[in-house]
Protein backbone atom coordinates (compact mmCIF):
# COMPACT_ATOMS: atom_id res chain seq x y z
CA UNK A 1 0.00 0.00 0.00
CA UNK A 2 2.70 2.48 0.94
CA UNK A 3 4.59 1.42 -2.19
CA UNK A 4 1.55 2.37 -4.28
CA UNK A 5 1.26 5.72 -2.54
CA UNK A 6 4.94 6.47 -3.06
CA UNK A 7 4.47 5.43 -6.68
CA UNK A 8 1.63 7.91 -7.02
CA UNK A 9 3.87 10.75 -5.82
CA UNK A 10 6.64 9.75 -8.19
CA UNK A 11 4.07 9.69 -10.95
CA UNK A 12 2.77 13.12 -10.04
CA UNK A 13 6.30 14.55 -10.09
CA UNK A 14 7.10 12.95 -13.44
CA UNK A 15 3.85 14.30 -14.83
CA UNK A 16 4.82 17.83 -13.84
CA UNK A 17 8.23 17.35 -15.45
CA UNK A 18 6.55 16.06 -18.59
CA UNK A 19 4.27 19.04 -18.73
CA UNK A 20 7.24 21.35 -18.31
CA UNK A 21 8.79 19.86 -21.41
CA UNK A 22 5.48 20.15 -23.24
CA UNK A 23 5.43 23.80 -22.26
CA UNK A 24 8.75 24.36 -23.98
CA UNK A 25 7.57 22.54 -27.06
CA UNK A 26 4.40 24.62 -27.20
CA UNK A 27 6.28 27.86 -26.58
CA UNK A 28 5.86 28.99 -30.14
CA UNK A 29 2.16 28.18 -30.23
CA UNK A 30 1.75 30.04 -26.99
CA UNK A 31 3.19 33.24 -28.30
CA UNK A 32 1.03 32.88 -31.35
CA UNK A 33 -2.11 32.63 -29.23
CA UNK A 34 -1.02 35.55 -27.10
CA UNK A 35 -0.62 37.78 -30.13
CA UNK A 36 -4.24 37.06 -31.06
CA UNK A 37 -5.47 38.05 -27.64
CA UNK A 38 -9.21 37.88 -26.92
CA UNK A 39 -10.37 37.37 -30.44
CA UNK A 40 -13.53 35.52 -29.36
CA UNK A 41 -12.09 31.99 -29.47
CA UNK A 42 -12.80 29.38 -26.83
CA UNK A 43 -10.93 30.43 -23.66
CA UNK A 44 -10.21 26.73 -22.99
CA UNK A 45 -7.89 26.71 -26.02
CA UNK A 46 -5.86 29.69 -24.82
CA UNK A 47 -2.70 27.76 -24.03
CA UNK A 48 -1.22 30.66 -22.08
CA UNK A 49 -3.59 29.85 -19.22
CA UNK A 50 -2.68 26.17 -19.09
CA UNK A 51 0.40 26.31 -16.85
CA UNK A 52 -1.39 28.16 -14.09
CA UNK A 53 -4.35 25.79 -14.25
CA UNK A 54 -2.15 22.70 -14.19
CA UNK A 55 -0.10 24.14 -11.35
CA UNK A 56 -3.08 24.94 -9.20
CA UNK A 57 -4.83 21.69 -10.09
CA UNK A 58 -1.80 19.74 -8.90
CA UNK A 59 -1.50 21.85 -5.75
CA UNK A 60 -5.17 21.74 -4.83
CA UNK A 61 -5.67 18.07 -5.70
CA UNK A 62 -2.58 17.05 -3.77
CA UNK A 63 -3.81 19.13 -0.86
CA UNK A 64 -7.24 17.55 -1.11
CA UNK A 65 -5.71 14.07 -1.26
CA UNK A 66 -3.54 14.61 1.79
CA UNK A 67 -6.34 16.21 3.80
CA UNK A 68 -8.84 13.49 2.88
CA UNK A 69 -6.37 10.67 3.41
CA UNK A 70 -4.95 11.94 6.69
CA UNK A 71 -7.76 13.97 8.25
CA UNK A 72 -11.28 13.53 6.91
CA UNK A 73 -11.43 9.86 5.94
CA UNK A 74 -9.92 8.37 9.13
CA UNK A 75 -12.49 10.29 11.19
CA UNK A 76 -15.44 8.96 9.22
CA UNK A 77 -13.89 5.50 9.06
CA UNK A 78 -13.32 5.30 12.80
CA UNK A 79 -16.88 6.39 13.58
CA UNK A 80 -18.26 3.82 11.15
CA UNK A 81 -16.03 1.12 12.58
CA UNK A 82 -17.01 2.02 16.13
CA UNK A 83 -20.67 1.76 15.18
CA UNK A 84 -20.08 -1.50 13.37
CA UNK A 85 -18.31 -2.95 16.41
CA UNK A 86 -21.05 -1.73 18.71
CA UNK A 87 -23.73 -3.30 16.55
CA UNK A 88 -21.77 -6.55 16.30
CA UNK A 89 -21.30 -6.57 20.08
CA UNK A 90 -24.98 -5.94 20.67
CA UNK A 91 -25.91 -8.69 18.24
CA UNK A 92 -23.53 -11.08 19.96
CA UNK A 93 -24.99 -10.25 23.36
CA UNK A 94 -28.52 -10.66 22.06
CA UNK A 95 -27.58 -14.04 20.65
CA UNK A 96 -26.05 -15.12 23.96
CA UNK A 97 -29.16 -13.95 25.83
CA UNK A 98 -31.44 -15.85 23.49
CA UNK A 99 -29.28 -18.95 23.93
CA UNK A 100 -29.54 -18.58 27.70
CA UNK A 101 -33.30 -18.28 27.44
CA UNK A 102 -33.42 -21.37 25.29
CA UNK A 103 -31.36 -23.30 27.84
CA UNK A 104 -33.62 -22.15 30.67
CA UNK A 105 -36.65 -23.22 28.67
CA UNK A 106 -35.17 -26.66 28.06
CA UNK A 107 -34.28 -27.08 31.74
CA UNK A 108 -37.79 -26.04 32.68
CA UNK A 109 -39.26 -28.53 30.25
CA UNK A 110 -37.11 -31.34 31.65
CA UNK A 111 -38.23 -30.41 35.14
CA UNK A 112 -41.84 -30.28 34.05
CA UNK A 113 -41.64 -33.73 32.47
CA UNK A 114 -39.97 -35.12 35.58
CA UNK A 115 -42.56 -33.76 37.95
CA UNK A 116 -45.32 -34.91 35.66
CA UNK A 117 -43.91 -38.42 35.76
CA UNK A 118 -43.56 -38.26 39.53
CA UNK A 119 -47.17 -37.15 39.88
CA UNK A 120 -48.44 -39.94 37.69
CA UNK A 121 -46.36 -42.46 39.65
CA UNK A 122 -47.89 -41.22 42.89
CA UNK A 123 -51.33 -41.50 41.33
CA UNK A 124 -50.66 -45.02 40.10
CA UNK A 125 -49.40 -46.10 43.49
CA UNK A 126 -52.39 -44.65 45.28
CA UNK A 127 -54.84 -46.29 42.89
CA UNK A 128 -53.14 -49.62 43.27
CA UNK A 129 -53.09 -49.56 47.04
CA UNK A 130 -56.75 -48.57 47.15
CA UNK A 131 -57.65 -51.34 44.75
CA UNK A 132 -55.67 -53.88 46.78
CA UNK A 133 -57.33 -52.81 49.98
CA UNK A 134 -60.77 -53.09 48.43
CA UNK A 135 -60.06 -56.47 46.93
CA UNK A 136 -58.82 -57.76 50.24
CA UNK A 137 -61.95 -56.48 51.98
CA UNK A 138 -64.25 -57.95 49.34
CA UNK A 139 -62.47 -61.30 49.59
CA UNK A 140 -62.75 -61.48 53.37
CA UNK A 141 -66.37 -60.44 53.36
CA UNK A 142 -67.16 -62.96 50.63
CA UNK A 143 -65.49 -65.70 52.60
CA UNK A 144 -67.44 -64.95 55.77
CA UNK A 145 -70.70 -64.76 53.85
CA UNK A 146 -70.09 -68.15 52.23
CA UNK A 147 -69.28 -69.63 55.63
CA UNK A 148 -72.44 -68.29 57.14
CA UNK A 149 -74.48 -69.48 54.19
CA UNK A 150 -72.99 -72.95 54.37
CA UNK A 151 -73.75 -73.06 58.10
CA UNK A 152 -77.31 -71.99 57.53
CA UNK A 153 -77.72 -74.47 54.71
CA UNK A 154 -76.46 -77.34 56.84
CA UNK A 155 -78.81 -76.21 59.63
CA UNK A 156 -81.74 -76.18 57.20
CA UNK A 157 -80.80 -79.61 55.84
CA UNK A 158 -80.50 -81.00 59.35
CA UNK A 159 -83.84 -79.58 60.39
CA UNK A 160 -85.39 -80.86 57.19
CA UNK A 161 -83.96 -84.35 57.73
CA UNK A 162 -85.14 -84.34 61.33
CA UNK A 163 -88.59 -83.22 60.26
CA UNK A 164 -88.65 -85.85 57.55
CA UNK A 165 -87.83 -88.63 60.03
CA UNK A 166 -90.53 -87.41 62.40
CA UNK A 167 -93.12 -87.25 59.60
CA UNK A 168 -92.28 -90.78 58.37
CA UNK A 169 -92.45 -92.10 61.91
CA UNK A 170 -95.88 -90.57 62.57
CA UNK A 171 -97.18 -91.63 59.17
CA UNK A 172 -95.96 -95.23 59.46
CA UNK A 173 -97.30 -95.59 63.00
CA UNK A 174 -100.66 -94.17 62.09
CA UNK A 175 -100.76 -96.19 58.87
CA UNK A 176 -100.02 -99.46 60.73
CA UNK A 177 -102.67 -98.66 63.30
CA UNK A 178 -105.14 -97.78 60.62
CA UNK A 179 -104.47 -101.07 58.81
CA UNK A 180 -104.73 -103.02 62.07
CA UNK A 181 -108.06 -101.46 62.98
CA UNK A 182 -109.53 -101.87 59.53
CA UNK A 183 -108.26 -105.29 58.59
CA UNK A 184 -107.01 -106.77 61.85
CA UNK A 185 -103.84 -107.51 60.11
CA UNK A 186 -100.88 -106.63 62.17
CA UNK A 187 -98.12 -105.07 60.19
CA UNK A 188 -94.70 -104.68 61.64
CA UNK A 189 -93.44 -101.17 62.25
CA UNK A 190 -90.63 -101.71 59.77
CA UNK A 191 -92.92 -102.71 56.91
CA UNK A 192 -95.13 -99.69 57.53
CA UNK A 193 -92.18 -97.37 57.53
CA UNK A 194 -90.88 -98.93 54.31
CA UNK A 195 -94.24 -98.50 52.64
CA UNK A 196 -94.69 -94.92 53.80
CA UNK A 197 -91.21 -94.03 52.60
CA UNK A 198 -91.99 -95.54 49.19
CA UNK A 199 -95.21 -93.57 48.88
CA UNK A 200 -93.52 -90.43 50.05
CA UNK A 201 -90.75 -90.87 47.51
CA UNK A 202 -93.13 -91.40 44.60
CA UNK A 203 -95.11 -88.35 45.69
CA UNK A 204 -91.96 -86.39 46.00
CA UNK A 205 -91.10 -87.52 42.47
CA UNK A 206 -94.54 -86.57 41.20
CA UNK A 207 -94.39 -83.21 42.90
CA UNK A 208 -91.09 -82.69 41.28
Amino acid sequence: MTRMVRGAWVLMASLILGLVSVRFALGAVDEHADSHGDSGGLPQLDFSTWPTQIFWLVVSFALAYILMWRVALPRIGSVLEERHNRIQGDLKRAKAASENAEQARQAFEVMLAESREKASAVMREATESIRNKMERKIKTSNASTAEKMAEAESDIAEAKARAMIDVVDIASTSAAEAVAQLTNIKISQADATKQVKQINDTKGEQNG
Partner: peptide
Protein backbone atom coordinates in the same frame (compact mmCIF):
# COMPACT_ATOMS: atom_id res chain seq x y z
CA UNK B 1 10.66 29.02 -13.49
CA UNK B 2 9.40 31.33 -16.23
CA UNK B 3 5.90 29.89 -16.08
CA UNK B 4 2.88 32.03 -15.45
CA UNK B 5 1.29 30.37 -12.43
CA UNK B 6 -0.91 33.29 -11.47
CA UNK B 7 -3.56 32.63 -8.87
CA UNK B 8 -6.64 32.87 -11.05
CA UNK B 9 -10.41 32.57 -10.68
CA UNK B 10 -10.02 28.89 -11.61
CA UNK B 11 -7.38 28.34 -8.92
Amino acid sequence: FGFDISFSNSA
